[in-house]
Design a protein around this nucleic acid. Structure first.
Lengths: 345, 345
DNA sequence: CGATTCTTCAGAAACGTTTACGAAAGCCCA
DNA sequence: TGGGCTTTCGTAAACGTTTCTGAAGAATCG
């Protein structure tokens, strides 16, 4: 005999009463409830999750979908992993389990998520790396699964999302460079279909226009989102006849590779080329010269995502104002010397 | 009508046959099986996980238990998070779900795990930050839950574990320092009950004895496992009348704080004090002078843990040689300049 | 051709929980 | 006293799946 039956037998009452006692239902005598709770603590009883999920129709778990480059491309930065740190802490407070949903790069994220949804593995889900047109959103809406997106899409946004404040970053970066006299400013964009690239490009062009600067099309450089991508950016820059005097990067690891390529060419960031990085990583403060970049707390982002997600879940309607969070996550400029050069006069 | 019933109705066969077809049971006509598989793909059917778990008695998920400092102590390094990256990739290959089990620092890890076990949330579990005497191991053995420990314990080891090769690290560090002429070598130990501290201390003393060096008890410095802990180590060193000429750290973030404290005192690592760090982080290669430390792949460690865990699970007896993995994870010396000083003559 | 085996499938039970329903007992009040 | 509440609890059904049991029909064999 196991589970609730054992507990009921031990107390010589019915399993229905045990269940009601444990779940705080009103129609149970207070003394009985206390006896049940005591016995449960004594025997170390906790309800079997599968049985409970099946009956209730909800699993008490939320999923975090990330893309997993299961190959040995070790460039994987720890962005998502840092977010997980915040997520677990916030979800722990509400006794929700977190299941990591790693979608192999070989599989279509939509198909992967569809299987998760069909299995009813989680009650709600966080999707990341949103694409410009992301079918996962239609899927989740149709299945009525609460969700929040980490990243905007190109389509309508009748759903919860949090995204980095690319507009703010682009404006701060361009304003700073423009003030230093730069007129030829390049931008690095990841060469994938993630919406981030489109958003940042638009934001950059906006910022440039705001400062009455024109963007040379050849100065919009597409590269892989990795250290190696930064190296190729260096190649591209060195091959240009009219080289920009500054560049803004959109992926933290790019700075490492770009530094390396510049050093190989005998050039110094902040003297021969102004470099503005993206997210401040553990390494950026140690790069020499120190990289000008933007700071944010991955942990806090995780917490924000958790709260935004809970706000979409009917079960938490009493604890969170229901509705769709739309939030641009602020990033704070960290001044380094990698762009400390004055142009012209 | 939902789930397998819908599929069965659509095909006009019984749900039993549908289930057997999907699960590759032999007693089903091949043409029927094909029809079922086609229909399942068409309708996007995947078996409800709760129903399946309940019936099968296994959940198709493994847990990774970490301690979550849900407070804002942001010092949390990304060690465990890096491991998760490897775990997800390896588990994905076997279609196992990963659920993160964050135990609040306020709760007893044993009680937390007991609840997880009682809920039957996962089929197997990875525990980390093992203590010298870790009751979780008795719990898991008694419940017959397959598990692997990240970290040794002080007790018998009739279970699977993987731990960092602290012995190798201590020996390499001491050998290197001894060759440079150091005789007064200190060691930093975390001031918690995690077994790691005991193991490293023993390994350090072994290594010292091997080089016929004596360990001054005051040179065994206990400090918090954080950057701030490194700072307090600096304080302790500066306050000593007979200061050691070298120190070996056992936690990566300690190096940052120690550097800071030394700099404040006008001292330079590698000139005034030889510093050997522990795990090479993204930052250590950028510290100035470059930190001598030890390299390992968190991702590979995650993969190793996954494989060691699968080897303990009866369900994978055909794919992995069953048995208990006992493995010291090698760490490779990365030479920096933080200990490049010659003592005496 | 009858007996036996094999193939294929339908039906039903079981996993552990929650909850709708109803019943028993106590109470109140006319 | 008896009818109607209220309180408390037991019973049974339901969630979606897998698997056991057995049965019908086809195939094989003596």
């Amino acid at each position: 005999m196991k589970g609730i039956k054992r507990l009921a037998q031990h107390l010589d009452i019915s399993i229905g009463t045990v269940s009601r006692a444990l779940n705080g239902k009103p129609d149970v005598n207070e003394e009985t409830r206390r006896r049940v709770l005591d016995a449960a603590a004594l025997l170390g009883y906790a309800p079997n999750q599968a049985g409970r999920s099946l009956r209730r129709g909800s699993t008490n778990a939320v999923g975090f979908m990330i893309e997993s480059n299961d190959e040995t491309e070790t460039n994987s930065d720890n962005f998502f992993l840092g977010v997980i740190g915040g997520l677990t802490g916030a979800l722990l407070k509400h006794n929700l389990d977190l299941v990591v949903l790693p979608c192999s790069v070989n599989e279509d994220p939509h198909d992967y998520l569809q299987r998760i949804v069909a299995r009813r593995l989680v009650d709600a889900v966080i999707i990341s790396a949103t694409q410009r047109r992301d079918r996962r959103i239609d899927l989740l809406k149709a299945a009525r699964i609460p969700f929040i997106a980490l990243g905007r899409t190109g389509g309508p946004d009748e759903h919860a999302w949090i995204d980095l404040d690319f507009e703010g970053v682009a404006h701060k970066a361009v304003a700073r460079l423009a003030a230093l006299g730069h007129r030829q400013i390049a931008v690095a964009i990841p060469d994938n279909e993630i919406n981030l690239g489109y958003v940042f490009r638009d934001a950059f062009e906006d910022a440039m226009a705001h400062h009455r600067l024109t963007v040379d099309p050849s100065h919009i450089i597409r590269a892989r989102s990795s250290e190696h991508g930064g190296y190729t950016i260096g190649n591209a820059l060195l091959a240009m006849e009219k080289r920009p005097t500054a560049i803004v990067l959109v992926y933290e690891m790019m700075a490492i590779g770009l530094y390396r390529r510049l050093n190989e060419a005998g050039l110094t960031p902040g003297r021969d080329l102004a470099v503005v990085g993206f997210r401040e990583g553990p390494q950026s403060q140690f790069l020499s010269p120190a990289l000008t970049s933007f700071r944010m707390s991955l942990r806090d982002l995780g917490i924000g995502l958790a709260e935004g997600l809970l706000a979409t879940m009917p079960a938490y309607a009493d604890q969170f104002p229901q509705g769709f969070v739309h939030k641009l996550w602020p990033m704070e400029l960290v001044e380094g010397e990698s762009d400390a050069m004055v142009i012209g006069r």
